[in-house]
């Protein structure tokens, strides 16, 4: 028997490509990724790497990933199809997994489609392709974090717009947690240990070493725990709602 999570994933992925959403997303993502990368002092820097592109990802994802995540559950609730889904023999956990993986795979495809950039830098010079690969792995994990938050936001409201705004706000807290200006404000009322804790919650901080080609255990642990936590929270929330209403 086919795993029900896989069936849900397949349906979801297909859904992306039967609506304009997927194409609009891919176009906007690829346009901005390429435009911003090559518009920056990419050529003047005379360095064959994708540093600029990876620097860009945290901000680019901030608006684009919630656009993918916002519909995951909100739309099901709004249209009532969630009743159909859960009247079928599929557990909440598997449905949540299926949807999450579908959206994540889709973003992975978007990331893969930036391959001409890799070819470009390889043509222009001889970059360290391991560093680039690590950067891509980091980018995918980073996207997973945004997506996990967005999926949770999508499960608590039946309105995709509310879900979008909520996820952008929550994600930006995690993006900007290690910005000097934010830390400066927090410094005035948080102890040093708490300040470090806040700083360590930042997506960008954990992306830093991956982007430079260093795969560190603590960064991986952060991503895995962060994603698992929000995905679990989504499952718990949906289960709770099912029982209540």
């Amino acid at each position: 028997m086919m795993n029900t999570a896989l069936v849900v994933m397949k349906r979801e992925l297909r859904g992306y490509f039967t609506t304009p959403l997927a194409y609009v997303f891919l176009f906007v993502f690829l346009f901005f990724a390429n435009f911003m990368t090559f518009r920056s002092p990419f050529f003047e820097a005379r360095q064959a790497d994708l540093r600029v592109f990876f620097d860009l990802l945290p901000v680019l994802f901030l608006f684009l990933v919630p656009a993918i995540g916002m519909k995951l559950w909100a739309e099901e609730r709004k249209s009532g199809t969630i009743e159909v889904l859960f009247s079928l023999p599929v557990t909440v956990g598997r449905a949540v997994m299926g949807k999450f993986i579908a959206a994540w795979l889709f973003i992975a495809v978007a990331l893969l489609l930036t391959f001409p950039m890799v070819i470009t830098v390889n043509y222009l010079g001889s970059p360290d392709n391991w560093v680039i690969a690590a950067g891509y792995i980091g980018g995918l994990l980073l996207a997973g974090c945004y997506l996990a938050v967005s999926m949770f936001c999508s499960s608590i409201t039946a309105n995709p717009v509310v879900s979008f705004i909520l996820s952008v706000v929550i994600c930006s807290l995690f993006v900007f947690a290690d910005y000097p200006s934010v830390l400066l404000v927090l410094e005035s009322f948080l102890s040093a240990a708490m300040l470090e804790a806040v700083e360590n919650l930042s997506f960008v901080l954990h992306f830093e070493s991956l982007r430079r080609g260093v795969i560190e255990f603590r960064d991986m642990a952060f991503y895995v725990l962060f994603i698992t936590g929000w995905v679990l929270a989504t499952a718990v929330w949906i289960n709770g709602r099912r029982e209540a209403g």
């Binding site: 069936v7 397949k10 349906r11 859904g15 249209s79 009532g80 199809t81 009743e83 159909v84």
Partner: peptide
């Protein structure tokens, strides 16, 4: 179970929707 107002995945074709339900079952 047929819910009130028959909410269905509008973007799917009839055959792919029925196929989805088959696979879940």
């Amino acid at each position: 179970y047929l819910p009130e107002n028959t909410p269905l995945y509008g973007e799917m074709t009839t055959i792919s929707f029925l196929g989805f339900v088959c696979e879940i079952r």
